[in-house]
Design a protein around this nucleic acid. Structure first.
Lengths: 211, 211
DNA sequence: GATAACTTGTGAACGATTTCACAAGCCCTC
DNA sequence: GAGGGCTTGTGAAATCGTTCACAAGTTATC
């Protein structure tokens, strides 16, 4: 299979969300055009995105909503559950630990860790904050695939080194720092300040930011 | 000026972060190559990104760190302050209201609003949660440029309509819903679940996600 | 002041992604 | 079962973003 662009994967995730809404409304079938307008793209884009993985529609008819939901979940790897550990139980870590959007998509938070004794032992929803000293033991025991980093920027690199050494192969980084990961580990970074700065650029340069 | 790609703006924001670190360490001058390695891109990319906005370096020497910081801040529109309102004082809204990364870059949170009477009146750092009924009046009075949406997906569209009607021209959407904005309003969305799903895709299809 | 060692700025080449455009397939009606 | 109206799947074309490669500018050294 040829490499798939990240932009394609991101759109598939959005299509899935819309399909679920359409399903909830009882719609049985949908065309690429309908899926496209709900998301500001074109019908050709929708069809091309799907075509990398097979053909899921019926010419003349469109796509069966339930089938396509199943197919996209399969493509994205959501037909199974993934285990997630959250490192850092500050404001953002705590918010993510209780975020329902994860559980409903098969991402199970199996542990949340902090260094601060005042936080250790507190309950966040279903789960109790544990000492950061237990990170390695728990990763080896529970074998989570994904670590979500919600620690201060200064310690981000050290924490990434620890979790990747312990066997984590995917990292979602909310810490405001650029970190390096070893080969074989995927990392994605979400930086709130950068998002605001892109907005500020758009406000400062009307008409000049490519949409 | 020709349209600037979002990827360019995003990199400028990252360059700025590194430059500030270099400045803190007392480094006076930097080459495009040094800036590139710290961020996993190439020196040509750095120079091209900057070239859209002018020439900031000296051939043979590189860039003056302080000057370049100033220039990038100017380009991004960070030479002034921006006023931000946060709508929704749940976990994520509360976390963002207290996030220091905003204030240090000139983004001032001038209001946070919620519908839930239990939250109205509580203090989050410096700022007190106000009733969502005051959103319109405050926007007209304080003239914030940016709204950050941290409300449940079901009400996201309604809230966006309210703030854009009141005069907001840029929206950062953390709500897990696709929303439409009128012409002339910029919107960016950050979706935690989508980020995890991209990671899951990578874990499910080793070697197939274009890096 | 000539030479060497660097580094920028940028047109041109390249590669990747999106859009176009149309043949092929499906359903419905007559 | 033939024809009309849709809609998919997909090569080809167009657009967009990144990388290459080199002329031109700067400093240091002799």
């Amino acid at each position: 299979m040829k490499p798939i662009a990240e932009s394609t994967v991101r759109r598939l995730s959005l299509y899935l969300r819309f399909l679920e809404e359409f399903e909830a409304q009882g719609q049985l079938t949908i065309s690429s055009g309908e899926l496209a307008v709900s998301r500001g793209t074109t019908s050709a884009q929708v069809r091309k995105d799907l075509s990398f993985f097979g053909s899921f529609g019926k010419r003349g008819l469109g796509y069966d909503v339930r089938d396509l939901i199943g197919s996209i979940r399969q493509i994205l790897g959501l037909h199974r559950t993934w285990s997630v550990v959250i490192i850092g139980a500050g404001k953002i870590g705590a918010a993510l630990a209780q975020y329902r959007g994860f559980a409903t998509r098969g991402f199970h938070v199996v542990g949340i860790y902090d260094k601060d004794p005042a936080r250790i032992g507190t309950k966040l929803g279903e789960i109790t904050v544990r000492s950061d000293l237990e990170i390695e033991r728990d990763i080896e025991r529970l074998r989570p695939q994904i670590a979500v980093l919600c620690v201060p920027g200064e310690v981000a690199q050290a924490v990434v080194d620890r979790v990747t050494d312990a066997g984590i192969t995917a990292v979602l980084n909310f810490a405001p720092a650029q970190v390096q990961v070893p080969n074989g580990v995927t990392m994605r970074a979400v930086n709130m300040a950068t998002e605001l700065e892109i907005l500020a650029f758009g406000l400062s340069h009307p008409e000049e930011l490519a949409s």
